[in-house]
Design a protein around this nucleic acid. Structure first.
Length: 562
RNA sequence: GCCCUCGUAGCUCAGUGGAUAGAGCGUUGGUUUCCUAAACCAUGCGUCGCAGGUUCGAUUCCUGCCGAGGGCACCA
């Protein structure tokens, strides 16, 4: 429709002496229904060009448009309003036609082709296996998975990847923490000590590292080791403890993700980048380009070349690379795998780190424009009106599993998706628990369940929705409003995918549910004459389909009964 | 000090350079012989942080200031 009107306006402009090169009219859906179904601001844009007031230009445009003339099956009216808007009203036949298209597309309605033929990789979660996923990881996980879903609906072929490192300092401390707990299982009389200060004081076995992991899961892993091996494990060797912890924690992480409906296509271990020598090859490449040099026993990256205030370290004097080096290698690897788009989902604390990585891969000759970073702001947990400070190591956190136990899987996903990624998310636990039945997600699901109920009841009364119906009978304002909002699903998905902003879809689905509920409140289906009932049944079924499609993109269930 | 994000209704937040800035929650009142009341209808709620600039037009873009959060390690 917009393409059609675009052409019409351009030919009208030709008749008026032509528009400037490269001009294309802008369209928008007016917020106020009195302003029609689609409005165009061409007259205002061209005020300077024609040296006339927008109002006059709009009148002339409208005149030429009616002389074309406009297809009466699509456009019912065009009028000039406000400072010079051209407001178009769609013909009823057009709406019926759109509804038919929604019905025919069915479960595929909403899919677009903007990414067709392109491959995308979404990297998310990427937590090192040092503890259970927390609420903070939850936002990352749900955001990443939903962005991936959106890209799939926009036509991309999408892979989901989890990047991790099981070799660093954190993992060593993890192993030491488990080992100390294990030693206490073997010898319950082992000397203890106190670590931490104030309210955070914890009594631990003597070998427990000062900054060790305090969570109960550590002791559970140690307990399992003791049950399996008794006291036979050699505590001089840290490796078995680290391995056992990693294995168990990864299993827990995967189980949590599965509960959220998330499946990773691949796990990428940072170690690979060392085994293939890629990181050292990158350093050599940088040296050749005069972007790396030695100083104080470390290898430095000349980030000043890219406008930074200071150079940064690539390899510490201990010989251990900083995160930058493997990250550059990892992104190079992704791009070599042929992806057209690589998306990273990062918390706001990583906001300053990725420019180095992008500069790095760009200077290696890769197309850094294919990398897109989604930054989300932190989740602030509120418990009893107080913010909860979270630390994995101190075990003052709420796990994702606990959250799902409290509020349910669908609410958890929806909560993380209902706000823009770049706003701080205030998560009031008490509110989420106590008032969970007031969560908007239920409103969407309820609308879906209600339609399913109507469809069941219609079937019982022998009313069929199969076959041809006269959709032109749907002329009630609430029916037309519903069709109009349903038509927007593909564009909403496209925009949400393009901007990596799932909340656009959450908000949209609420609009659909509202439009359906208003229709439901004013129009009956069962009990009307057969022709009208059938048309309305198909309309309701289409609304059900739109809700179901949208919810599936969000990864939220669409129940048939509630 | 420098960088990033945010500042919109009592609260939590939407808002594509456009017309009278929206929704949920909360407030108050009403609605059920009727396809799900987990609902609907009505109701009030605003110096869009402040000041400039660009524009026919700015909550939206630019600059400065104020405020909140995050980041500025040989941590990730």
């Amino acid at each position: 429709m917009q393409a059609y009107l675009n052409d019409c306006i351009l030919s009208a402009l030709d008749a008026m002496g032509g528009a400037p090169d490269g001009f294309s009219p802008e369209f928008e859906q007016p917020a106020n229904p009195d302003h029609g179904d689609l409005s165009c601001n061409a007259a205002m844009q061209l005020a300077r060009h024609f040296r006339k007031s927008p109002r006059v230009i709009a009148d002339e445009l409208a005149g030429h448009l009616s002389a074309l003339p406009l297809d009466p099956k699509r456009v019912a009216s065009v009028e000039v309003a406000g400072p010079g808007f051209l407001n178009f009203r769609f013909a009823d036949a057009h709406l019926a036609d759109q509804l038919k298209q929604i019905i025919d597309a069915g479960a595929a309605f909403g899919k677009t082709t903007s990414g067709t033929g392109k491959r995308a990789l979404v990297e998310f979660v990427s937590a090192n296996p040092t503890g259970p996923l927390t609420v903070g990881h939850g936002r990352n996980a749900v955001l990443g998975d939903t962005v991936a879903n959106l890209l799939e609906w926009a036509g991309y072929e999408v892979d989901r990847e989890y990047y991790f490192n099981d070799a660093g300092r954190q993992m060593r401390i993890l192993g030491e923490s488990v080992r100390a707990r294990y030693m206490a299982h073997v010898n319950p009389d082992i000397p203890t000590k106190e670590i931490g200060e104030g309210e955070e004081v914890l009594t631990v076995p003597e070998p427990f590292p000062e900054d060790g992991y305090r969570g109960e899961y550590i002791d559970a892993i140690a307990g399992d080791l003791f049950e399996t091996h008794g006291g036979d494990l050699d505590t001089a060797d840290l490796d078995p403890f680290k391995k056992a912890a990693e294995k168990q924690i990864f299993a827990d992480i995967e189980a949590t993700l599965k509960r959220l409906g998330i499946h990773m296509d691949s796990f990428f271990n940072e170690r690979t980048l060392y085994e293939t020598n890629r990181v050292w090859e990158i350093i050599e490449a940088f040296r050749e380009k005069n972007l790396a040099y030695d100083k104080d026993g470390a290898v430095w990256f000349k980030t000043t070349e890219f406008g930074k205030e200071a150079d940064t370290v690539l390899v510490k004097s201990t010989g251990e690379p900083t995160y930058r080096l493997p990250d550059i290698g990892y992104h190079a690897d992704k791009l070599e795998r042929g992806y057209d788009l690589c998306i990273d989902i990062f918390g706001a604390d990583h906001i300053a780190t990725f420019p180095d990585v992008l500069d790095g891969i760009r200077s290696l000759g890769y197309d850094a424009d294919k990398v897109d970073v989604v930054i989300y702001q932190f989740v602030t947990l509120i418990r009893s009106g107080e913010p909860v400070k979270m630390s994995t190591r101190k075990a003052t956190y709420v796990t994702l599993d606990e959250l799902m136990d409290e509020v349910g899987d669908d609410v958890t996903r929806y909560f993380f998706l209902m706000r823009s990624p770049n706003t701080h998310l205030e998560f009031d636990l008490d509110l989420a628990k106590e008032a969970s039945d007031k969560n908007p997600v239920f409103y969407l699901q309820y609308a879906h369940a209600r339609i399913c109920s109507i469809l069941r009841k219609a079937e019982e009364t022998g009313l069929s929705r199969e076959g041809r119906a006269d959709l032109g009978l749907l002329d009630h304002p609430t029916e037309q409003a519903l069709v109009k909002v349903m038509m927007d699903l593909p564009e909403t998905i496209d925009r949400a995918a393009e901007n990596r902003e799932p909340h656009r879809l959450s908000n949209y689905l609420r609009d659909v549910a509202v439009a359906f509920t208003q229709f439901y409140g004013q129009c009956r289906i069962i009990g009307e004459n057969d022709e009208l009932a059938k048309a309305r049944l198909q309309l309701a079924d289409a609304a059900r389909q739109v809700l179901a499609n949208g919810l599936s993109v969000l990864g939220i269930s669409a129940p048939e009964r509630m």
